[in-house]
């Protein structure tokens, strides 16, 4: 609750949350808002092919005569589904790896961190690309591959935080009274690391959405779905030479919109849970006072401060 109140005071974070809300609403109410069904077969008249925006089609039509605005609304569903599902799976894997590696240390830690190092040096997009190219295009395949490869940053972050948390007094005391290791990890370490995990996961969702969009743009998206990446692939292949900007630009800006929203939320959360230094020595004294003065009022029940740098 304290975190929520602090978040409400971050203008950037609130802007991001509002922006995300628009996309979520578009995804949920797509069938109600969309003037046309983008999955329906259409037989378009020649003048309805790549038609510029008009009252009937506020964002024009694509190369098959379908309404771009309706596709845009339905595309939000794919992006959000991929982003949230894949990131949640990554979050669970990354947190588990980070907690186990950080808490137990020793050989387990070494092995797990080598796996992380390994995944970090393999070029990500080419790897996802060849796997999907060989395995076949499909929504759940894309989600699976992105999820199974995308947990490395979370694991590193959680491990670093676990290393510092496990030195704290109450952890040592819990161990002294005979609490089991899994219990300590789940009941005492995880709650301390959770805020960082959430902040990182929000940023991960943005990265996942971008990865899916890039993959679809390169022609490996789920061919049965209307997604922003697929739209951009079609638009790039068939509409760019005909200057059909109404088909090309909206899906691109939609991706930018949702990923920016998540980045704004994620960085604001990060600032709250991982407070950095508030001033430095090259400021002149006047400005330094101005920066330091507005001390946020302390919450009644201060949470355990998470100070250590990840």
């Amino acid at each position: 609750m304290n975190y929520l109140r602090q978040f409400a005071r971050k203008p950037m974070g609130m802007i991001g949350a509002a922006m995300l809300l628009v996309v979520v609403a578009a995804a949920i109410f797509a069938p109600l808002i969309a003037p046309y069904d983008p999955y329906a077969r259409v037989r378009a008249a020649p003048d309805q092919i790549l038609a510029p925006p008009s009252p009937q089609h506020i964002l024009g039509t694509d190369d098959a005569g379908k309404d771009v605005f309706s596709q845009l609304l339905y595309g939000a569903r794919v992006s959000l589904l991929v982003g949230f599902t894949a990131s949640l799976v990554s979050m669970v894997i990354g947190s588990a790896v980070g907690l186990v590696a950080g808490y137990y240390g020793g050989k387990v830690d070494t092995v797990l961190m080598r796996v992380v190092d390994f995944l970090l040096v393999i070029p990500y997009l080419p790897l996802v690309l060849v796997i999907i190219a060989v395995w076949g295009r499909g929504l759940w395949k894309i989600i699976f591959v992105i999820a199974i490869l995308g947990w490395t940053f979370t694991a590193r972050l959680v491990r670093a935080q676990t290393l510092s948390v496990k030195q704290r007094q109450y952890i040592l005391r819990a161990r002294a009274i005979g609490a089991s290791n899994p219990r300590i990890i789940l009941r005492h370490v995880l709650p301390q690391v959770m805020p960082l995990i959430v902040a990182q996961t929000v940023l991960d969702i943005s990265a996942t959405i971008l990865a899916e969009a890039s993959l679809s743009f390169l022609g490996l998206g789920d061919p049965t779905l209307v997604s922003w990446g697929n739209m951009l692939n079609f638009a790039f292949e068939r509409a760019i030479s005909r200057q059909a900007w109404w088909f090309l630009l909206p899906p691109g800006f939609a991706i930018l919109w949702v990923s920016l929203a998540l980045i704004l939320i994620g960085t604001s959360l990060e600032e709250i849970v991982n407070p950095r230094i508030r001033s430095h020595h090259l400021f002149d004294a006047r400005r330094m006072v101005a920066l330091v003065l507005p001390v946020p009022p302390r919450p009644v029940n201060p949470p355990e401060p998470v100070k250590e740098d990840a």
């Binding site: 971008l210 743009f217 951009l232 691109g252 991706i255 930018l256 990923s259 920016l260 980045i263 704004l264």
Partner: peptide, 10 residues
């Protein structure tokens, strides 16, 4: 932040 959020291809 804007450049970070932008898909490279776009």
């Amino acid at each position: 932040l804007l450049a970070w959020a932008l898909p490279t291809f776009f």
